[in-house]
Design a protein around this nucleic acid. Structure first.
Lengths: 355, 355
DNA sequence: CTGAAAGCGCTTACAG
DNA sequence: CTGAAAGCGCTTACAG
């Protein structure tokens, strides 16, 4: 049956002995050095095969003081947007046979610190980080002081002075709002998201810019922030329906919120896309499945992933290169959820009392 | 500004020198040994702080010939079912401050081999593997020969002789089918999935068992297999509608397929839950959002994740323990998609020609 | 073309 | 309570 005794892994020394050469010869074979004649090479390789040799990369890294590891810290694996970024990262890495140390913070600053420390102890060459709100320059410095590279993914923080890849949130917020304005809406709410985050500020800025350009008033009571998971959409809808002067259109901070919001509206017998226009942000695949389909501003999560890896590689290769911030252009995807009612809110108030 | 020169990380030796002690004292402090008096301890700790010492875990692992790393290989980050398993794994790991080497195979056997090799070179203590179809005993042996543990997650392979965690597919298939039979259906199709996989065989077995117990015929033309991504649902629907004697209910291999299938039906003006009853398998969150809501057999992805980690830990601690296979009980979640037509297929044939 | 030796940063007996 | 020394598996000059 199976041999459960934990056998010691075979070393280069043993291979060398078996093949009747010195250890340095084994290394040279492993490195594909052309100075080793074919016969010796074959002998060494077949010894490796026979003994089941597996290279010890940790030992090599210690000796050469360089590492093959990269780190990846995401906030929450359940967010489909992050899953897609993950695909981009993984497919870019797979091509080079690279491998990644991986952890999730679940939006906890303590977890993030713990993960960064742990990765640095493993001497990663760089870390791709979806920063938790509250991340400071000190977190980044900790990484850089060990000579590792840091790339911020998805959430931008100019004040952290490191490479970043993000979506043009201002532009995106503006596109979403302009789309609603073109649909005849004049009272448009901006819902969800944390005001501390650069992302939120960007989307809000775009939202306000579109309103101002259209000569519409910016009403602070129409901006209601809060967290950003699907469940929070329900709470946001509750608060919107409490307003005395209801909006006719809702621009949600992200798709997850928008979907949660649409579910809540349906429970109140308000039909998204008919009674209220809805727009989200992210372009997650579920938006297409929902009824009505969710109009959204799509950033390019896969592209974000592949570019994050590339940024990290560039930084590792050339630590002195000037800082780079890649800003991906978003794209408006119009579906049924934004074709909603353009009349005055009277009708909607009536509807909402139907329960 | 930022110092871009790649400074050498501080070593224990330097800390020892700075604190005026020997290197072994530094190690003892790091290990929290009680034999070091408080004053010395403080001195060493403040030197570490001052110099910015970061423990080199790789060096320690080399010396002690033991590793703190675990490996995780999933097939495809886009499948929401896997995202949820990931959550379970990550939250279980986070509690112990553990960290994971991570890779995605995208269902490629070559990638899987590459990832396993790479992880073994990093001397992981064990690997959690969502095995790609075609995985052989040799893959597992390769892991075990290095003294690492292997746990198969989600897809069961009894012939691979290692710890496994999976869902009771037979039971699940039976539950789904019995639910449809109770709804009055007599022609029920089983759609999608690869017959090579244990998972597929299990679900099909349950499907057939339910039919036989109800005294219904098992019609091979109603079993159409194929891949299992959302897009493949369209093709399956096309093939179903080509049958001369149409089924009234469709049991899909998984939820992704079922959702794809429902989208395809809608395009043909066939309403899932009215013209045809649909049941899926997995219990992914989107199933609830779709209109109609998807009836499904829910396995417990998060539980699967946490248990995978526990299995791996147990195996690492006690390599001689007898093999364990955890089989999670599935649960039927009834939504609107399965309330479909129970009449004879005549009506549906008529409908389908509406285009 | 191949070998002997030093050293990467750590831990672990072993002395004292 | 603390230090000197050996060694984990590898790579890299340096000889020959």
């Amino acid at each position: 049956m199976i041999d459960h005794s934990k056998q010691e892994p075979v070393t280069q020394k043993q291979v060398a002995q078996d093949a009747g050469v010195s250890q340095s010869t084994v290394t040279l074979v492993l490195q594909g050095s052309s100075s080793i004649p074919g016969a010796t090479r074959e002998r060494v390789l077949s010894s490796m095969q026979k003994l089941g040799y597996v290279y010890n990369r940790g030992a090599a890294n210690l000796r050469t003081n360089d590492s093959s590891l990269m780190g990846l810290i995401i906030s929450d694996p359940i967010n489909p947007f992050y899953s897609e970024v993950l695909i981009g990262i993984q497919s870019e890495l797979t091509q080079s046979g690279a491998i990644v140390l991986f952890g999730s913070t679940f939006e906890s600053l303590a977890s993030q610190e713990q993960l960064i420390s742990s990765m640095l102890e493993h001497r990663v060459r760089g870390i791709m980080l979806f920063p938790v709100p509250g991340t400071t320059r000190e977190h980044i410095l900790k990484i850089e002081r060990l000579g590792a590279a840091a790339v911020l993914v998805s959430r931008s923080h100019p004040e952290l002075f490191c490479d970043q890849i993000t979506t043009d949130d201002v532009k995106g917020g503006q596109m979403a709002t302009e789309h609603l304005i073109l649909g005849g809406h004049r009272r448009i709410a901006f819902l969800g998201g944390l005001p501390e985050s650069q992302t939120w500020r960007g989307r809000k800025k775009g939202y306000e810019r579109a309103l101002r350009r259209a000569g519409l008033p910016v009403d602070p009571s129409l901006v209601i922030n809060g967290p950003y998971s699907r469940e929070d959409g329900t709470e946001l809808i509750r608060r919107v329906l409490e307003l005395q002067d209801l909006p006719t259109a809702l621009f949600f901070y992200n798709d997850d919120l928008a979907i949660g919001g649409m579910l809540a509206l349906k429970k109140k017998r308000l039909m998204p896309g008919r009674d209220l226009a809805i727009v989200g942000f992210d372009g997650i695949p579920e938006g297409e499945l929902f009824n009505p389909g969710l109009t959204t501003v799509k950033s390019s999560p896969q592209l974000m992933g592949t570019n994050a890896v590339r940024l990290l590689r560039m930084r590792i290769e050339d630590p002195g290169h000037k800082l780079q911030t890649i800003v991906l252009k978003p794209e408006l995807i119009v579906r049924e959820s934004s074709s909603g009612n353009k009349q005055l809110p009277g009708k909607i108030t009536g509807k909402s009392s139907v329960r």
